[in-house]
Design a binder for these strands. Sequence first.
DNA 1: ACGTTAGTTGACCGATCGGTCAGGATTTGA
DNA 2: TCAAATCCTGACCGATCGGTCAACTAACGT
Lengths: 199, 199
Amino acid sequence: MAAVTLHDELRAIALAEFATSGYAATSLQRIADLAGTSKASVLYHFASKELLLADIVSPAVDDLDRLLDSIDTASGLRHADFVENFVDLLLRHREVVPLVINQGATLDDVPVMHRATEIMRRVAELFRLASGSTMEKLRFGVAFGGVAYTLAAAERLGLSGEIDVDDLRGALLVILHELLVPSEQSLAPASLADPTPKD
Amino acid sequence: MAAVTLHDELRAIALAEFATSGYAATSLQRIADLAGTSKASVLYHFASKELLLADIVSPAVDDLDRLLDSIDTASGLRHADFVENFVDLLLRHREVVPLVINQGATLDDVPVMHRATEIMRRVAELFRLASGSTMEKLRFGVAFGGVAYTLAAAERLGLSGEIDVDDLRGALLVILHELLVPSEQSLAPASLADPTPKD
DNA sequence: ACGTTAGTTGACCGATCGGTCAGGATTTGA
DNA sequence: TCAAATCCTGACCGATCGGTCAACTAACGT
């Protein structure tokens, strides 16, 4: 095995354990045992368990934050482009997706996780989730929830190795496009689907 | 009769806390505090924390088990019918869906949760997940994962009250049907798709 | 040679965990 | 009135949690 610093190895082990067993259920002692070191050593490299989690999750959250900023500034960017960028981002940070998806709500008191959920709210805002009809909301929820959850499940069950990433990417884009662009027209803010029906 | 027993109240409180804060992060002491009783009292009504979880989750799992059995025996039942029954089941047990969806994998050592994931495997089997193409697998994953996850998120964020259940049901069925029956023909080869395959 | 720094560790801390237990209330049935 | 059953509780238990700390080792620049 290539020379990997203990710092990086600890982060990798923690990520795997957090994702499969859960943050709360993973003790620093267990992480230390898996790395063949001591608990005190873990706390030397990472000041606290929360900061260890932040160190793991932050890159993905920063990435998403940057993506959303680029959308905001370049107002002309179409939703279809965002979908593609979003899928790429999910694939890029494939390993941390299960963490934020399955345990993000539970760990909302941890700053980095709170930030993650706040940013997802921005994504929802971008797609006018709040103002859409029930059907629109559900399309958005099923699409992104489904994609993220499926990636999470695949990662968790160890199926990621079996599936070609390019196939995965292409198939996800097709499915997302079908869901979010049900009609021939674009996802443009004007009308995602039909005008809101009477309620 | 209307008087809610402490037993039922404890179960309801535990369900809400398990779903929002997580099983591991919810202590028996907190459940007791929320119910205005003592931890020992909780352990009088439920022999252990695991059995409390089982008491909460079992009805939904039993329900799903029964649904799958009825599918197995009545081989003629079509997929569309199953989808409808499945959505109804999810809506019926709306409150426990976040629990098994978000924490099922993490709590696989708890018998009732292991049973839940095993049954979900049967659902996947029913849709021939393993033998399908990457696209088929993803359609299944995004569809059911998306629906379950969206229900979980809605429940968690307290949006359930805002949305009319009938609207919800109808919209979910439309979306699932679009995803699982993309073309004119059914998803599954022969047997399950058509009760009377041509000979 | 020396001091400095980074890395590592066992011992230890207070807090909290799930769970046990003996016993105090309260109700019920005879 | 007595006794059994039911419900509830404070005190307590061993285990484990995240985190601290002083001491130790090894490497490096000077």
